[in-house]
Write a protein that binds this DNA or RNA. Sequence first.
RNA 1: GGGCGGUUAGCUCAGCGGUAGAGCAUUGCAUUCACAUUGCAAGGGCCACAGGUUCAAAUCCUGUACCGCCCACCA
Length: 888
Amino acid sequence: MIELDKTYDHTKVESKIYQQWLDSGFFNPDNLQGEPYTIIMPPPNANAPLHVGHALGMTVQDILVRFHRMRGRKTLWLPGTDHAGFETQVVFEKKLEKEGNSRFKMTREEFYKQCWDFVQKNKHISEEGIKRLGASCDWSRNIFTLDPKIVKTVYQTFQEMYKDGLIYRSGRICNWCPKHQTGLADLETKYEERVEPYYYFRYGPFTISTSRPETKFGDKYVVMHPADKRYSKYKQGDTFEAEWINGSVKATVIKDEAVDMEFGSGVMTITPAHDPVDFEIAQRHKLDIEQIIDKRAKLLPVAAEFAGMKILEARPKIVEKLKAKGLLEKIDENYKHNVQLCYKCGNLIEPQIVPQWYIAMTKPLPDGRPSLRDMAVDAVKNKEIEIVTEKFEKIFMHWMENIRDWPISRQIWWGIPIPVWYDKEGNTHLQKEKKIIFVRHGESTGNAKDVYEGQLDNPLTKKGLEEAAKTAQALKGKKIAKIISSDLQRAKTTAEIVAEALGIKNISFHPEFREVRGGKFEGETRKKGFPLLLRILGEGAGETLEELITRAKEAWKIINAIESEDPIVVVGHNSFLPVIKAVQEGVITKEGLIDYRKKWHLDNAGIYEFTALVNPEGEGLVQDPDTFDTWFSSGQWPFATLMTNGEKDFRTFFPTQVMETGWDILFFWVARMVMMSYYKTGKPPFEKIFLHGLVRDKDKQKMSKSKGNVVDPLGVIDTYGTDALRFALIFSTSAGNDIPLSEDKIKGMKHFANKLWNIARFVLANLENYELGIMDYEFKALTPADTEIIDALKFAIDEVTEGLENFQLHAAAQEIYNFVWKNFADVYIEKSKEQLKDPILKENTQAILLNSLFIILKLLHPFMPFVTEEIWGKLNQKELLLISAWPK
RNA sequence: GGGCGGUUAGCUCAGCGGUAGAGCAUUGCAUUCACAUUGCAAGGGCCACAGGUUCAAAUCCUGUACCGCCCACCA
């Protein structure tokens, strides 16, 4: 007889159960069968602890993932963390500021290293948080957005898009944040209504008006609408002298339709260097453009005595001066207008002309496909991608229609550097693609004996010679630029056989590491696994890590010196081949090398082809100082992540099934993923987009640190348990709507977990020695109460299943909640107490109680994984509830 | 300026053609019996307003009034 505690104590259960799940290996789809079901986790910022919004997202995804795993799908939920370029840099700079430091006092390298360490330290905190939420994701595939394998994919995409003419660099005007010293996309700015004085000035024969007199120093064009009759006597190109801030200027009349005749006097002067509309007018008419304000929002020498002043300081003084000159006509003190602000720091955006990289959103692809925008729009229109809740589909379409080219460069340091170099003439140089064909030597006498060879210079066996010839055949027909080989006999001979068969004269041999230091491993019997490299590095028997890396870099020098687009064949032994690849991709730690050694194992005479991106080298080449917008790399996340684990994952799990995230990053992220994925793979990144709302406090207020109403999910978990938090987040809310979360609600759900626990306690207490495996129990002599609960149970199964299938999680949660508490506990259990006393009805009743409990646990498991798994474990089950079959 | 939503019980929200629902809160009763992190019961709504479609409207259509959000941004 199994006794349960009187109440459910989550603190005794959760970490234990999570460990059981991890140990089972079933978070990893490699241990599951069936049709793949994939969700890529939106990677939380590595620098910040989880907030309750993450808790909601993780819960929703975990529910979907657990549901489909139980339904027999090969389920992959791929976790990761995000370097979150701008966000993290802002946080880190604030930290520096507190310490009296600044990034402008540091070298870029210093800054990057410190930021890296800062992020690595915090990364574990968010990963721990994800675990505590019960996320059943596959940690063996956990990945960071700055992982070299991700960066490589990002660079490849950049290169492809550049070659396709979709990426270009332009010196047009951009949103500039003077505080953060970077350009920003439109999405990264916000508007705020302000009431500010509005000034009317005399400018030659005209009246012009402005809220920003400090920009007006360089103004030498007056612009009016061509159809404005009031000014018909002025013609395009007319000039006149006008007394202005610092003396007389020669002004030119420009006619442009951008001018609103109704507004002010219908005449304006323009400041092309600091206003997007003015800039466009200047472009149209090929007007001079002069910078007035510097990147720190201070006035330049053109402002004469005002030079060096901050704009807000200068403004009243300039007005004063113009007034003294009799040029001020009037001031409207109640002028309401919108000002553009940096969405992070809230400082005024100062438009500046700074060259940025852009992606063309509406330009058709050179291969005949429509533009990035159109591919995304088409996908949603013809339901290749479905956005859950129509509301967001409309918003998505509307945004897409008005989309502008996307600036992807940022003048910040924390992020992926832009892989572009400039020479002295300002020409652009990209990374070079090097096609590499690795070939391992054929079987050597050492291989035949299955021993480690190390530096032993063994020849090929007869079989090895044949293998080399076979490999040569496989390469036949390829144009090969050169063969580079190790000078060990086994490699040399293999290389020569290949060269001869393909008729290649261009072949060179390079010295291997030959020194014997201990040499303990030589000739030893090969054991399981991939220990050779480990032993080289670990036991000091051979080459040190530094020596190995140096040698790999030397190899790359040789490869890079080859000026050919054709593939280069590299012949060597099994340990060195992946090392070259790893070093090229920047994985230069011991762990990184060993990881590569495991992944790229080659059989004797095996072939492995890949394309490397190599930085250009040359006199005076300077790398572009900018980094990518985080969303440029995370926009590639669904395929980039799946491409890191060999090609198999990508083939198996892409396109993924669902992207679940907050609606607030629909444009930032989701739209970009759709476009990038179609571009790169020709496929949608996911079939469904499921957007959750913002979690608000009980008064529907947005949570914020300054309001002090932030709910810490981990604190809630400590007090009420993960299951309670999860159920509270899901219960009585529908997709895409904001969710008010109150402590009462969470408490109520803790009560529900306890209710379930006591239901189990009751069922178990009344089982006596009844054997537990009764899922096939044949019911006889059903009472009306029995029939009723069986029907209700069937109904609940259907409703919960349907709710989960249709992303109506709240409906599913309510259904199971009501069934458990009302139908089962309040009605059936109460009636069963009588029935259990009846010797005829007893067994039947026990069977119904137990079967119902089984089904309840299954239905509830996606929502409340811990308490259900714990109870399940008390029911003498062999397999985990985690992978038990979903009821039908 | 353009677009998208919302308005249902005191509070938070489901329902979206067929007799008004949940959680919390309120009130009364019960309580050695799985659970007081409980049970039973009660009160509480012309489903914003005005028209229309329909045998039938909280649910569909049109308009009005508030509330909210997104996009654009006029010097």
